[in-house]
Design a protein around this nucleic acid. Structure first.
Length: 462
DNA sequence: CTTTGAGCTA
């Protein structure tokens, strides 16, 4: 199967149904108490099913409709815009968001979600006889971290100490970092001992990443120094350096100032050398981070140096590596080199192009008026099993029309639109029965779930 | 449990 094939729908399993029914019960505010019991033929809860439910709750309660729903425009509807082609305007590092939770959150809904989750968590144990394990406990902790409910989280961790290990604290720290709660993430790191957990490399790496995310490289490097000390209980690994390199590059792009960019890129390169000096072997990801940072700051020569170094050291570049170059060459209006890179990737068996490889090339070709070639690449892309983004599709169609070119074959139109539709439904996480494409608000998703009892009569467990 | 990328828009 092609790695980038879009699956038309999620498998229609009984576990999905179960999750749907529990979510429906939560949204209808049916209490998880003695009144609610599974039917006699219910096979019982499994860890995986409990985890599924807990992982689904944030999607319904912690995000508001605005961040989920989106307007869906159809073919030929949006006007075609051309980006300027000047070198300086090619902004490769756009849209970087290093921290912060989603913009819109309804506190009341979050509160409800947390209450329901806790209710469910104990209901499953007390009414259904399910014994919680480390994994279900971890998922519950993650949920509380996502809800930013720190006192509740700590109370939960302490009262379930037997099921809490280093891995759980690590995943909590990760979420706190992603939520922008860096202080809390660091506090969790230092409070681990209270839960009788010892930090390991992964845990260190996660805190370092949380610190870097907000640009606190000093604290991050302090931890690295601590790890690098001779005889340290927890020496660094390849991940540690990769994280630092990656964030130096990202930070560098975030600032508009030339000097700051230069300094950060220097730090990234320096960290790379430090890693080699300490005897670590960089892997593909390490190279990819640095190469991407270099491409986005227009230092292609250095990027190529590293690329050659990879080949020399027997570290095979992958799709991600090539895509960095392809993005660069497309943005600076050297499409032919981008195409050359893509072909080289195939030829050397380093990977197959995906939509991420085709898209910049197609955009660039449209901008330069090479519509025919853009069209050919779109066809090639769909043949390879990738579905373009809606924007790309509209762009090519519009440009073809404007230039009086022959339209794409009808069959291709159909396949692309079906693919876009399928992807859209997949993002919404709604079963095809409700037709998610036109109903795009969260409220309508609720309807889809609440009516699931009627849709699937006979397989209901609750 | 920890690391890369993912293009559009006002």
């Amino acid at each position: 199967m092609q790695p980038n094939t879009i699956h038309t729908a999620r498998p229609f399993t009984s576990r999905n149904l179960l999750v749907g029914q529990v979510m429906a019960a939560m949204l209808q505010d049916r209490p998880f108490g003695p009144a609610l019991t599974p039917s006699p033929d219910f096979p019982g809860w499994t860890s995986a099913a409990v985890i599924d439910v807990l992982a689904t709750i944030p999607r319904f309660f912690f995000l508001s409709p605005r961040s989920i729903g989106r307007q869906h425009s159809f073919r030929h509807r949006s006007p075609i815009r051309r980006r300027s082609l000047r070198h300086e305007s090619a902004d490769l590092g756009r849209g970087l968001r290093l921290h912060g939770p989603p913009a819109y959150r309804d506190p009341a809904k979050v509160k409800l979600g947390v209450a329901k989750a806790l209710e469910f968590y104990s209901w499953v144990e007390s009414r259904c006889g399910f014994l919680h394990d480390q994994l279900t406990c971890r998922e519950m902790s993650r949920l509380l971290a996502k809800a930013n409910r720190l006192p509740t989280l700590w109370r939960f961790l302490r009262s379930n100490e037997a099921l809490v290990g280093t891995a759980t604290v690590t995943s909590v720290i990760k979420i706190l970092g992603e939520e922008g709660l860096t202080r809390e993430a660091l506090a969790a790191f230092y409070r681990m001992k209270q839960l009788h957990c010892k930090p390991d490399v992964q845990c260190y790496n996660t805190v370092i990443s949380a610190l870097c995310r907000v640009g606190d490289f000093n604290k991050a490097r302090f931890l690295l120094n601590q790890m690098e000390m001779p005889g340290a209980p927890c020496p660094p690994d390849t991940y540690t350096y990769t994280i630092l390199i990656s964030f130096y590059c990202k930070r560098s792009l975030q600032t508009g100032c030339r000097k700051a960019i230069r300094r950060r890129i220097w730090e990234a390169n320096h960290m790379f050398r430090r890693m080699l000096f300490k005897g670590f072997v960089p892997d593909v990801v390490t190279y990819n981070c640095l190469i991407d940072g270099l491409c986005k700051t227009y230092r292609v020569e250095r990027a190529h140096e590293l690329f050659d170094d990879m080949l020399l050291k027997g570290c095979s570049p992958n799709r991600v590596t090539y895509n960095s170059f392809i993005r660069y060459y497309s943005a600076v209006n050297e499409v032919d080199k981008a195409i050359e890179m893509m072909r080289a990737m195939l030829l050397r068996k380093h990977g197959t192009p995906t939509s991420s490889s085709y898209t910049p090339i197609i955009h660039s070709l449209c901008e330069t008026g090479r519509v025919g070639e853009a069209r050919d690449f779109l066809v090639e892309m769909v043949d390879g099993g990738s579905i373009p983004r809606e924007f790309t599709y509209n762009l090519v169609c519009g440009t073809l029309n404007g230039a009086g070119h022959e339209d794409l074959p009808d069959e291709l139109h159909r396949r692309i639109e079906e693919g876009i539709d399928a992807r859209f439904r997949q993002v919404m996480g709604v079963k095809p029965v409700m037709g998610g494409r036109t109903r795009s608000t969260q409220e309508q998703m609720y309807i889809g779930c609440m009516t699931c009892n009627e849709q699937v009569k006979g397989i209901c467990y609750l």
